[in-house]
C-alpha cells in the first residue's frame, strides 16, 4: 500500500487553541479511516508564548515520534508570529502556508522570506466573530486547511464535523449552526495566492 504521508506544523500562541486545532484535524482525518498523529511541542507553558503543534496523516501507522522539520503545510493561527518565528522553515514549495489574517496573500508573501509555494489567507477571526459572536478561530481555520490540503474529502469532512458538533453541543443547537456556518465559510473564503 502506498503511504503518502502529509505533515503539518501549526504555529500559534499559548491559549489560542493551535493544539486543539491540531487535535481536531487529527480527529477529522481519523474519521475518514486514516492513521493520525496530533501532538503539541511543549516549551515554557504560558499564555501568549509562541507554541507549535503537529500532525502526521497517513494510510499506514507512522512510527516516527519526532517533531516535523519539513512540513507539507504550515498553519499560522496568529499573524503577529510572522515577524518573530521563522514559520516557513523547511516548508515544502509544493505545499502551502495558511495564515489567519484579513490581509491578502500578496500582502503577506513579502513577510515570508522568499517562500515560493502557495500563500493562503483566511480571516478566521472575523468569520468566528460573525458566526459565533466570539473569537474562536479554530473552526474556520480547520476548514481552510482541509480545503487547501485536501487531506480529507470536503463533504466527508463537513459531515463528520457536523456529527461532532451535534455531539459536543447537544444542549446548544444554535452553537451547532454557527459552527457549521463558520466551517462552510472557512472553506469558501480561504484566499489562495
Amino acid at each position: 500500500m502506498k503511504n503518502e504521508m502529509i505533515e503539518i506544523r501549526w504555529h500559534g500562541r499559548g491559549g489560542q487553541g493551535a493544539k486543539t486545532a491540531a487535535l481536531l484535524l487529527a480527529d477529522a482525518a481519523f474519521h475518514t479511516g486514516k492513521f493520525v498523529q496530533g501532538f503539541p511541542e511543549y516549551g515554557p507553558e504560558r499564555m501568549g508564548a509562541p507554541i507549535t503543534a503537529y500532525n502526521r496523516i497517513s494510510e499506514r501507522r507512522c512510527t516516527v515520534h519526532s517533531n516535523i522539520y519539513e512540513p507539507d503545510y504550515v498553519v499560522v493561527v496568529d499573524e503577529t508570529l510572522l515577524s518573530c518565528v521563522e514559520v516557513t522553515a523547511g516548508l515544502k514549495p509544493e505545499g502551502a502556508i495558511i495564515i489567519n489574517s484579513g490581509k491578502t496573500p500578496q500582502a503577506l508573501r513579502e513577510l515570508l522570506k522568499g517562500y515560493t509555494g502557495r500563500v493562503c489567507t483566511i480571516d478566521a477571526g472575523r468569520i468566528s466573530e460573525e458566526e459565533l459572536g466570539k473569537n474562536f478561530p479554530n473552526t474556520p481555520m480547520l476548514a481552510a486547511v482541509v480545503k487547501v490540503s485536501g487531506i480529507v474529502e470536503p463533504d466527508a469532512f463537513v459531515t463528520n464535523m457536523e456529527q461532532s458538533f451535534r455531539h459536543k453541543f447537544a444542549a446548544k443547537p444554535q452553537v451547532v449552526e454557527g459552527n457549521l456556518h463558520a466551517l462552510r465559510r472557512g472553506m469558501e473564503e480561504v484566499r489562495v495566492g
Partner: peptide
C-alpha cells in the same frame, strides 16, 4: 508528552 500527549490511532 511524546506518547502521553500525542493522539494516535
Amino acid at each position: 508528552f511524546i506518547t502521553s500527549h500525542a493522539i494516535e490511532n
